[in-house]
């Protein structure tokens, strides 16, 4: 709220200062400009769009009935690999992200250059999409779930570290000062002071990321990094749409089950 004087000399309350109004206007303007520019320049082939209803109907007819015969032995092993990849990736991401998160938190690590370095690592890992990480790791370790787990882990580091460092920075000063008064070393302050206070953040970040990672691990197979995506990719390459439908259904079930599980655990733990 700010107070402005009108021309009649009376004072009037307005909700935003002129600077706030200008900033909001600038955001709206930029948004509209971006959309107008995109709509005018995007390359869309109209023939393909006209064809779409036909294609969708064709795809639908070929997806039904769902072909359950492929469930065993092709879909099930790939399906079960997907949550494993997600779990290992989450653990590895936590193992790398939590120390970097502590380094990025300004109160736990009062060394500016270390904070900046840690923040840079977090932003950089987060900025590379999972599929690109997966391409690298497939080239390094060959196709398979290992490449997938590493790809998701490296992408998760940025997210985990950022959220966790924000949790650490919100920690209360009192207990830390008490520890300092007893002559605790910086490491002891982290283990005895910051870590217990950041524990709820840790659980919430770990569960949230696990949920996301299950979804992500379903696409990695497209570049050969294991999981249900491999089965999906081969079904699409073979144009067996009834099998594609089966795989999509199983992905849906797994994701819904994991999400339900995460909500349950969250209720219990946090």
């Amino acid at each position: 709220m700010s107070l402005v004087a009108t021309t009649e000399g009376a004072r009037r309350w307005v909700r935003f200062t002129p600077a706030e109004r200008m900033a909001r206007f600038a955001v709206y303007l930029a948004g509209v400009a971006a959309i107008v520019w995109s709509a005018r320049t995007i390359e869309i082939i109209p023939e393909f769009l006209l064809d779409a209803p036909e294609q969708v109907a064709d795809m639908g007819s070929r997806m039904w009935p769902i072909d359950w015969r492929h469930f065993w032995p092709e879909v099930w092993p790939a399906l079960i690999e997907t949550p494993h990849i997600a779990a290992m990736a989450t653990l590895l991401g936590l193992a790398m992200g939590i120390p970097i998160g502590f380094l990025a938190a300004r109160n736990a690590t009062p060394v500016p250059w270390l904070n900046h370095l840690a923040r840079f690592i977090l932003v950089a890992t987060r900025s590379i999409p999972t599929l690109i990480w997966a391409l690298f790791f497939v080239a390094m370790f060959g196709p398979g779930p290992l490449a997938g787990a590493l790809a998701i882990a490296f992408h998760s580091v940025g997210f985990i570290g950022k959220m966790f460092s924000e949790g650490v920075e919100e920690a209360a000063r009192g207990p830390i000062e008490a520890l300092t008064a007893t002559g605790a070393t910086p490491m002891q302050k982290i283990v005895m002071g910051y870590w217990p206070m950041a524990l709820p953040t840790f659980w919430s970040v770990a569960l949230f990321r696990w949920d996301i990672n299950v979804r992500e691990s379903a696409v990695l197979g497209l570049v050969g990094a294991g999981g249900i995506g491999v089965a999906l990719n081969s079904a699409i390459d073979l144009i067996q749409w009834d099998r594609v439908a089966l795989i999509l259904l199983t992905i849906f079930v797994v994701v819904v089950v994991i999400e339900w599980l995460v909500t349950r655990i969250r209720e219990r733990v946090i």
């Binding site: 082939i45 769009l49 064809d51 294609q55 795809m59 849906f252 994701v255």
Partner: peptide
């Protein structure tokens, strides 16, 4: 439930390659 890239596979089949 589906990752955008998985939806994209289906969308590519439905409306062809490209930005649409």
């Amino acid at each position: 439930s589906f990752h955008p890239v998985i939806i994209a596979i289906i969308a590519v089949k439905a409306i062809g390659f490209g930005a649409a």
